[in-house]
């Protein structure tokens, strides 16, 4: 399968062109946020306070990197499990968030919001933090520094290898991939 090259921020038309199972290489600006940062962002949104970044067309990477060694842009930086962000993602998607990078299942409310507003869920390889860190050109803490590894960082990435797990129509590789494997091996 041909690998698609895409840019972040992610436009709605590009997001809608991506299909579950596609391999992509993502370049551009992504923001990191995990559990604690999501909680603060969504609380700030509800209170009408300023946000660390504009959610419109933003791609958020669920990652808490290890500290960078001297000379590195970032330490190891693989995805964390996404379902812990399920409580917060629908509100962000409603505000324009276009992409999520993580690993593991998503809840029905997230998938519904993705279908309604046009957002994509990408899988990065869990447990491949050393490999993925090589795609990060720069990293800068832009909010919630007190959260340490969980602070919000602005990353510039180049050719970050991802798989489209759930597309804007709600097709889910975790379901179809397993079914296809089992169908091919049931004979």
């Amino acid at each position: 399968m041909a690998i698609k090259r895409i840019q972040a921020p992610l436009t709605e038309s590009v997001a809608r062109s991506l299909k579950s199972g596609d391999s992509v290489l993502l370049s551009g600006t992504v923001y990191t946020a995990r559990d604690a940062a999501h909680k603060r962002i969504v609380e700030a949104m509800a209170a009408g306070q300023p946000l660390p970044f504009d959610p419109q067309d933003a791609v958020i990477y669920y990652v808490g990197p290890t500290p960078a060694k001297p000379g590195q842009a970032i330490g190891s930086a693989g995805p964390t499990t996404s379902y812990r962000m399920d409580a917060y993602s629908p509100a962000l998607i409603a505000r324009g968030q276009r992409g999520m990078i993580g690993k593991g299942k998503r809840g029905p409310a997230v998938v519904e919001a993705m279908q309604q507003y046009g957002a994509v869920y990408f899988g990065a390889i869990g447990g491949a933090g050393a490999l993925l860190s090589k795609c990060v050109r720069s990293a800068e803490v832009i909010a919630y520094d007190d959260l340490g590894a969980e602070a919000v960082r602005k990353l510039t990435v180049e050719d970050l290898p991802l798989t489209v797990v759930i597309d804007c129509e709600g097709n889910n590789l975790y379901e179809t991939g397993r079914q296809a494997y089992l169908a091919a091996h049931s004979k």
Partner: peptide, 15 residues
């Protein structure tokens, strides 16, 4: 990934 971590002496996984 294992081999990158091993040769560069960096964590295999960020967790």
């Amino acid at each position: 990934n294992y081999s990158i971590a091993d040769t560069r002496n960096v964590p295999i996984c960020q967790d």
